[in-house]
């Protein structure tokens, strides 16, 4: 018996990149802050390019704490959705044809969110990665770390608890 050949690399990549764009491009607030996502396999790094409108204290100048909070929260929500969609993406089951609101995945909802500000946000690009500490049937707990010039010197840490949307066709638990 012959094993099926794996899909060519460009097909795999375009499927993954297409799914990531489908997940993120429909959310206006992600565009408002200018957040982008870098992908390496299933690992996502959120990028917040510097914009003058993201400044909170023009004297220093420093990024607005609310921008940093929002950046961490967006990263947590997208990374959790991405992880839960991964199997379907790999199986080619995600319909990327449509960006109509009705066809987009239901996003997890934030229950609460703690952010620690370790250093002032500099007027430069910022990066963030999320780690899903637990993802159960109803709740998930996601840690997020953001840095700027040095990955070993995070400037903000977040812990986000989220409510996981019920699977399609399932009643809420």
């Amino acid at each position: 018996m012959k094993r099926a050949l794996p899909d060519p690399v460009h097909i795999v990549k375009s499927r993954r990149d297409g799914a990531l764009a489908w997940l993120t491009s429909g959310i206006p607030y992600i565009g408002f802050l200018g957040i982008e996502f870098d992908r390496r396999g299933d690992e996502l790094t959120a990028v917040l390019p510097f914009a003058p409108s993201n400044i909170g204290n023009p004297m220093i100048p420093a990024l607005h704490g609310g921008v940093t909070a929002a950046f961490l929260e967006v990263t947590a929500i997208i990374c959790l959705s991405w992880a839960s969609l991964w199997e379907e993406i790999e199986a080619g089951q995600v319909d990327l044809g449509s960006l109509e609101p009705g066809s987009l995945p239901t996003l997890p909802k934030t229950i609460n969110f703690t952010v620690d500000y370790l250093r002032a946000g500099l007027p430069r690009d910022a990066y963030a990665r999320a780690r899903i500490m637990r993802s159960g049937r109803r709740f998930a707990s996601v840690q997020v770390e953001a840095w700027q010039d040095n990955v070993a010197r995070p400037y903000a840490l977040g812990l986000v608890h989220l409510l996981i949307p019920p699977a399609a066709g399932q009643p809420p638990p």
Partner: peptide, 25 residues
């Protein structure tokens, strides 16, 4: 511009966080 969920059109929690952070400051 502040919509976080295109299905429900609810404002993103991040924008609410930014507002609450500013009011606190």
């Amino acid at each position: 511009r502040l919509i976080g969920d295109p299905v429900s059109r609810v404002v993103h929690g991040g924008a609410v966080s930014a507002l609450m952070d500013t009011a606190s400051g």
